[in-house]
Amino acid sequence: MTKEERITTEAAIDRYADMVYRLALSQMKNKADADDLFQEVFVRLVSHIQDLESWEHVKAWLIRVTINCAKKHYNQYWNKNVDYIEEPERMADESGGYEMPEEHPVRAAVQKLPLKYRLVIHLYYFEERTVAEIAQLTDQKETTVKSQMHRAREMLKSLIGDEL
């Protein structure tokens, strides 16, 4: 896609669907919730797309809204007090989906981390955001982000072991 491509919601879906989906998966407890989160984020984009001036702006907006919607989801009473006991489902189609632990051990270990640690790990290592950008996206101080990063790595070490 060229830079001159007109900024529309459908074009944003084509561009950033994988990014939003991966972020949603890292934030939610199961695939169904992740799918709902994915859809909600892009539907919200419809009413805000005219305010976004560039694709970078759109990307940052999508990450921020995904994080906020995930927080809102966990703040609801049902989600605070109810936990799922079913096994994670595996997508049969080629486009992938929720992976099984034995296929993606590092991801599986990351999924076991608390939500805020998962987020900083994903944004830092996969989205390659700086600490300052992560702090802005999550409305936290940089020192807090650094501290979360350090703790997350410590926990991953204990989960995965010396392979880190």
Partner: peptide, 17 residues
């Protein structure tokens, strides 16, 4: 670990449906 995490995550795509 970082590379492994990136590799595993890049295999995930949003379902077509």
């Amino acid at each position: 670990m970082i590379d492994q995490y990136k590799k595993e995550t890049s295999q995930i795509h949003a379902p077509a449906d």
